[in-house]
Design a protein around this nucleic acid. Sequence first.
DNA 1: CTGGTAAGGTAACGTGTATTACCCGTCAAG
DNA 2: CTTGACGGGTAATACACGTTACCTTACCAG
Lengths: 217, 217
Amino acid sequence: MATATRAKRPSKDSRRAAILEAAAQVFFEQGYAATSIDAVIERSGGSKRTIYNEFGSKEGLFTALVSESADTALSALSADGFEGRSLEGILLGFGRLLLKMYMSPGLIGVYRSIMPEAGRFPELAKDFFEKGPGRASDRLAEVLESARDRGEIQLEDCRAAADHFVGMFRGNLHLRVVLGLQPPPTSAEVEAAVRSAVGIFLHGIYGDDREGRAKGR
Amino acid sequence: MATATRAKRPSKDSRRAAILEAAAQVFFEQGYAATSIDAVIERSGGSKRTIYNEFGSKEGLFTALVSESADTALSALSADGFEGRSLEGILLGFGRLLLKMYMSPGLIGVYRSIMPEAGRFPELAKDFFEKGPGRASDRLAEVLESARDRGEIQLEDCRAAADHFVGMFRGNLHLRVVLGLQPPPTSAEVEAAVRSAVGIFLHGIYGDDREGRAKGR
DNA sequence: CTGGTAAGGTAACGTGTATTACCCGTCAAG
DNA sequence: CTTGACGGGTAATACACGTTACCTTACCAG
């Protein structure tokens, strides 16, 4: 049996992808409990049997969907090329990355759907938090600590500061989008929000000797 | 008919309150779609008929629950006695108020349950946002603007800054609690988080002439 | 005390849904 | 071309839930 499965019948992977695509539409729109397997099938084509063969159950499908959506949306957090930059540059880059991630349809959907189900899927909630907001905060805390070690900033609790920074990007703008009260922001709006947040955060970080002040205009 | 309804049969108000109490437990724990009317009755006593007489439908019950929970938790936002205080004092007080509100069981529950239902209850979502995070941001923006007018701070976009401030109090700590990954923070943790957030926010706000610097220790 | 009214309780109804038993077409080997 | 087996489609099953029809009981006017 060749590993390359050419087939008239759609390949296993494409079936799986189509189901996950359809599942994203309905689960992320209606929530886990209100979504029926039939509704997924209506959009993906194929049959319920395929879903049960591939994912085992409704829970399995939801778990796989959330897990993969989060992984995809959050994978950008791994690729950090922040080495040679200034602290302001790092924060701006990090902020843009964060805000774009948080505003991506995949993560918005994960947010919407995981909240009431966190009790039913504790491991999923834990994984999501640690891979996303938790990791973002960890990485930023490291950056801040090394900056503190170099004497660039003065900060008592780098971890708390990192949490606050991350929180600024899940503020009212994010909430409005998650609640469906407004469409995702344009690139210009994203950029403005990032610059504003970084400005506030940065100028509160610099110590009393304000050497870095002239750098930003 | 006397207004004081002494009754062997529990008064209408107490029945209503008992139902809402029970509804809060199950809706906020399981989410709207996964909650059955029977589950509410099991905890409140009484009968389904009572619920349908009082609230009309499952949707009506949920709407009333979210609406009243939000009103109760958010009523503290109206009572502002921030007049004579310094900007730092105002922000600290406002921060404590915000964080305690966001961590209250009622608002945590509203958060959990309204997210995936925002599409189904657009008005409820809008009301919630405007009465809560939106209003908080509005009020803070006013405070910031008047401070700017007095020359205390230099800030381009007070509205954006207010959103960021509010966002810091819905950061990773809040998310962990909403996802059930940790219990609500103690008073000491709340105080530490507030001081940290206000510190970052404030020292980023003060203009180049850093007159207010000596005030806070 | 008595009758009338409205609210509370019970049980049924119809619907929707997760899951599975069964059957058919398709694909690879011989 | 034939054959055997496996994945995919259909329909049935068992169940849970929102809602309501009907009955019972508690309250109040006279």
